[in-house]
Design a protein around this nucleic acid. Structure first.
Lengths: 352, 352
DNA sequence: TCATTAAATGATACCGGTAACATTAGCGCC
DNA sequence: GGCGCTAATGTTACCGGTATCATTTAATGA
């Protein structure tokens, strides 16, 4: 029944698989390596050879196998990004900038969400390393000890985003959350506000929120203003949490003259709550936010907020990674893309 | 100077590289393949061998190379998703659901944005195939001819999301945009509205928007209501575009009794514009949206809208892909996750 | 007792590309 | 003419895992 002859190592294990570079080479009448050269650097092959290969590729519909390429060349065209959540639009904008910058350089984007957990971030760093990305983007400058160790030990460019206050592990792109918050509060004080409430995301596992809170305290302290503990609140990233925080603050601390929401998810929620409660701003209480969501320009009156370069951070991050991958070791290690306080009608304005 | 002896094929080309499975094997005193077995299926190795390997992995901090694994096993643990844009929160929610579902199964997510261009989508399908993903997720059921051909020809599960009207190329998960829009308009008509405006995203390259518009026309026609061409508008996905559309409609068509924005990005913009113009809803004009953004519940009065299972689509998509990858060929090909019309105060309510 | 079978483990080739080196041809120049 | 040099192309081994088949060991049973 079974024929005794034993095939001596058949050549192709996967007859259903895709076309290989060898098939294209055969079609073009050259060797596989020449096709490889043409694909990666057309200038390296003679013009007529290149044309033969090009038409062989076109006719056959060959699509290269980047997995094989990655293994053989020891470099992939994938960049990994770990963000807290894609549903917060500041990170969606970051990812968009990153994606645009990477696509322009033939790279793909692998993303994962840590859910604002540093433990989870650390696990994701490991699983991302397993994919052998060409570069790694993380959020913030604080990580678990083991996470930071992993980031230090890998031999690919690592980019921390959204905060530039500390010395980067490798590179960072963002702005100073402390300064931005400090300047906002300082401006409010100059505008005549004295009793200023502060609402931010929970500061656990979130150095950006932590720096913003520190900026608030520092500005208050510098002006010699006392901060009542109840003025400072946590609220998770959700519009309704901002609404809840505003409700609690105005009920429990009617003395407040202004409320600074250190995220526009929260400030928009706060504005909605004001409208529901018929609280007028800036007349009854000044309201300001952080992030410059598109919506902040459309409330009535529009919201004072901090414009941060969300898309630009991603785009710059991509550029920095690409430069490093191209061997440019002169890339700046810490890039501060700045911020801008946008004064609009939801608060009184500082003089001048 | 240079020693004449020629090393006969040195074993390791990349001494700076990461630990390999062979290193772990040596540490544990077993062969590489046994370590591989332990990693992929611990039950396949003896208990004490497994323990030795486990501690060797732990001590050495070995992180597997998924690129090599992908090449050798001809299957990667990466799923590719192509969405129009990550900055529209409906797709951010989709991606979030997808990401959660994939992570639970040890898979990673590769994303790319097509910018609502089918041409770009087609290019991205090609570059994604080059990465040899385990599965591919796209948006909508309409693609370029070549794009559809590619999707049909690949031998991995393909999942079309957010629309279930047509026969899927392989699988689809979503809901009927036509029905959802039809039911919303039908409800408005039952609530007594006759002159109803319609604002949606541009329908070019966007079958979801196209179906929603068709649903509007069908419901109007069924009720014997005439549609004035000027009542139907395009607006790109941006809050200010929704605001602009509302402004134009109320100025040019003051006869309109209700305006249906077929996206909550647009409806929220419309609401903001109403507040600025002191237009009351539902008193002056009924306003309703589509998507059920969190914010729609917080406007004053809250917005009538269509709740769609954004996160669930992504999560279900992941589950369907994983089932197929596990060899389950009984997976449903077309999964309709439904929708719900949420009647709130921004429109009059249909009877009962 | 020894063949039979299952469980555990190992040896080897291979996945589809590319790095490193080899080879060939063509050219300039002394 | 021969040498050196460059441009174009080919040969071979290798990237770090796993599929496949082989081998060893232990357990089972007539």
């Amino acid at each position: 029944m079974t024929s005794p002859e034993k095939k001596p190592t058949q050549r192709r294990k996967r007859p259903g698989g895709r076309l290989q570079i060898r098939d294209v080479a055969r079609l073009a009448g050259v060797s596989a390596i020449t096709v490889s050269r043409y694909i990666n650097n057309p200038g390296k092959v003679a013009k007529d050879t290149g044309e033969k290969i090009a038409s062989a590729i076109k006719e056959s519909g060959y699509i290269p196998n980047m997995v094989a390429k990655g293994l053989s060349s020891n470099r992939t065209n994938v960049v990994a990004a770990i963000i807290p959540t894609i549903t917060n639009s500041i990170f969606a904008d970051l990812v968009s900038g990153l994606s645009d910058g990477l696509e322009d350089n033939g790279h793909r984007l692998l993303i994962a969400e840590s859910g604002y957990s540093l433990e989870r971030e650390m696990e994701l760093i490991q699983t991302m390393i397993a994919q052998r990305p060409a570069g790694l983007v993380v959020t913030g400058q604080v990580h678990t000890e083991h996470g930071a160790e992993l980031l230090r030990s890998i031999d690919i460019p690592v980019l921390e985003t959204f905060e530039t206050g500390a010395e980067p592990i490798d590179m960072c792109a963002g702005f100073s959350n402390f300064d931005a918050s400090f300047q906002m509060v300082k401006g409010l004080i100059e505008a005549g506000y004295r009793k200023i409430g502060f609402v931010s995301a929970p500061i656990a596992s979130n150095d950006r929120a932590t720096r913003r809170r520190e900026g608030y305290f520092a500005a208050m302290k510098e002006a010699g203003l006392n901060v009542v503990p109840g003025w400072v609140r946590d609220a998770k990233f959700a519009f309704r949490e901002g609404a809840r925080a505003l409700g609690e603050l105005v009920e429990q601390h009617p003395e407040l003259e202004a409320i600074f929401f250190a995220s526009d998810v929260l400030s928009i929620g706060g504005v909605m709550e004001c409208q529901r409660r018929k609280i007028r701003f800036p007349e009854d209480v000044g309201i300001c936010g952080f992030d410059d969501f598109e919506l902040t320009a459309m409330t009535n009156p529009p919201l004072t907020t901090v414009r941060i370069p969300r898309y630009e951070i991603g785009h710059k991050a991509a550029a920095m990674l690409m430069a490093r991958l191209n061997g440019d070791e002169t890339v700046e290690r810490s890039v501060d893309l700045g911020f801008e306080i946008v004064w609009r009608g939801s608060t009184r304005l500082p003089p001048q």
